[in-house]
Design a protein around this nucleic acid. Structure first.
Length: 344
DNA sequence: AACTCGGGGTA
DNA sequence: TACCCAGAGTT
C-alpha cells in the first residue's frame, strides 16, 4: 500500500480539478484567489475573480488603484477586511519587496490578510515549499481519515489537525502542488459534508470514518449558539434624483463601504437629518422590513424613504455624498443596501 | 479561547 | 432554519 501523499497526488493528477481560472503560474493570481476563497465557495468566487483580474491584472496595478475602486469590485463578496488587507498587501509588495512576491511561506505570512493556511497554499502551489494548509476541506478529510472526533474549531483539535497535516506532506517538492490541490479537491468533490462518495476515494482503504461507518458524524458539528437580534432604520434620502450615501468607518461591519444613514428610531432620524446634515425632510414612504442574516447576528432593517425639501448651504461632510441610483449600484455597497436601492 | 467579520449554497 | 464554505485578525 503506497503512502497517503502518493495516493493523493496520483488521484489528483487523474481525477482532480485542473480547469479552475486561478490554476496559473502567477503568484499574484494564486494569492488573489486564495484570499477570495477564504470562507467563500468556489462557485461564488469565480465571477468576482474574473472581473477583478481584468481590472487589476497585476500587483502593481492593484497597489496603485484607489481603495474605493477595489472595494467596489469586492462588494457582495463579504468579509471586506479581505479587500482592505489585499490592497495594503499589494502596496507592501511594491514598496517593501520591490514588486516581487515573497518566495517563502514565512515571508508571505508577514503580509496583511495572509495567515498560516493561505501562505502555505501560495508557497506550495507556486514554489513547491513543503508546508501544510488547513482549510475547511482539509479539516473534513483529515478528521474523517484519522477518526478525530472533536470539533475542529476547538484549539486542541485544530493543533492536532495541523500536526497531522504536516506529517502527511509528500517527500518531494515537485509533488507539493498536486498534493495541496488534491487535499482541496478531495474535500470539495468526494469527501463532501453530506453523502461523501467513498467508493472512488484514494484513502478509503485506511479511512477510519469509512471503516467504522461514521462519516456522517465527522467532523463534529459546531456547538449551537443563540443568534442575537438587532434592528435599525435605514434612511433613503431623495433629492433631485439622487440618494445620500454615507461612507462607513474602515473597521467594523461593512467597513469602508458606502451605505445608507442609519438611526435607531424615526424621530431620531428626522432630527439627525436636520441637525447633522442640514436637511429639512418629509417622510414619503415606509418600505417593508428587510431581514439580513450575518454569521453572528440577525439584523432587521426598516427602510424609510424621505424627500428632501430644503438643503443648507453648508458644506457636506467628507463621508457623505449624493449618488444617482446607477452610480450607487456601481459603488461598493452592502448587499441589503443594493436590494433597497433596486426597489426605489 | 472567544469574538468579529458577509453572503450565498445546501439539506 | 442552521450549518458550512480554499480563514485571518483582534481582544
Amino acid at each position: 500500500m503506497s503512502d497517503f501523499a502518493d495516493r493523493l497526488t496520483r488521484w489528483q493528477r487523474l481525477h482532480g480539478r485542473h480547469d479552475l481560472p486561478w490554476q496559473v503560474a502567477d503568484p499574484y493570481r494564486v494569492w488573489l484567489s486564495e484570499v477570495m476563497l477564504q470562507q467563500t465557495q468556489v462557485g461564488t468566487v469565480i465571477p468576482y475573480y474574473q472581473r477583478f483580474v481584468t481590472t487589476f491584472p497585476d500587483v502593481a496595478t492593484l497597489a496603485a488603484a484607489p481603495l474605493d475602486e477595489v472595494l467596489a469590485h469586492w462588494a457582495g463578496l463579504g468579509y471586506y477586511s479581505r479587500a482592505r488587507n489585499l490592497h495594503a498587501a499589494a502596496q507592501k509588495v511594491m514598496t517593501y519587496f520591490g514588486g516581487v512576491f515573497p518566495r517563502s511561506a514565512q515571508l508571505l505570512e508577514t503580509l496583511p490578510g495572509i495567515g498560516r493556511s493561505t501562505s502555505a497554499a501560495v508557497a506550495g502551489f507556486c514554489y513547491g515549499e513543503r508546508v501544510a494548509i488547513l482549510d475547511g476541506n482539509v479539516k473534513r478529510v483529515l478528521s474523517r481519515w484519522a477518526g478525530i472526533a472533536g470539533f475542529p474549531g476547538e484549539k486542541a483539535v485544530e493543533k492536532q489537525l495541523w500536526a497531522l497535516a504536516e506529517s502527511l506532506l509528500p517527500v518531494s517538492e515537485t509533488d507539493m502542488p498536486a498534493f495541496t490541490q488534491g487535499m482541496m479537491d478531495l474535500g470539495a468533490t468526494l469527501c463532501t459534508r453530506s453523502k461523501p462518495q467513498c467508493q472512488p476515494c484514494p484513502l478509503r482503504g485506511d479511512c477510519r470514518a469509512r471503516l467504522e461507518d461514521c462519516t456522517a458524524e465527522l467532523p463534529a458539528r459546531k456547538p449551537k449558539k443563540s443568534v442575537p437580534e438587532r434592528e435599525t432604520y435605514m434612511l433613503l434620502l431623495r433629492h433631485q434624483g439622487r440618494w445620500l450615501l454615507q461612507k462607513r468607518p474602515p473597521t467594523g461591519i461593512w467597513g469602508g463601504l458606502w451605505s445608507l444613514p442609519e438611526t435607531a428610531a424615526i424621530d431620531a432620524g428626522i432630527a439627525y437629518c436636520q441637525d447633522r446634515l442640514g436637511l429639512r425632510v418629509e417622510l414619503a414612504e415606509a418600505l417593508p422590513e428587510l431581514v439580513h442574516t450575518f454569521t453572528h447576528f440577525r439584523l432587521t432593517i426598516s427602510p424609510l424613504v424621505l424627500d428632501v425639501l430644503e438643503m443648507d448651504a453648508r458644506v457636506a461632510e467628507d463621508d457623505h455624498a449624493w449618488f444617482t441610483r446607477s452610480d450607487a449600484l456601481q459603488a461598493g455597497i452592502p448587499t441589503p443596501v443594493r436590494k433597497l436601492l433596486q426597489l426605489v
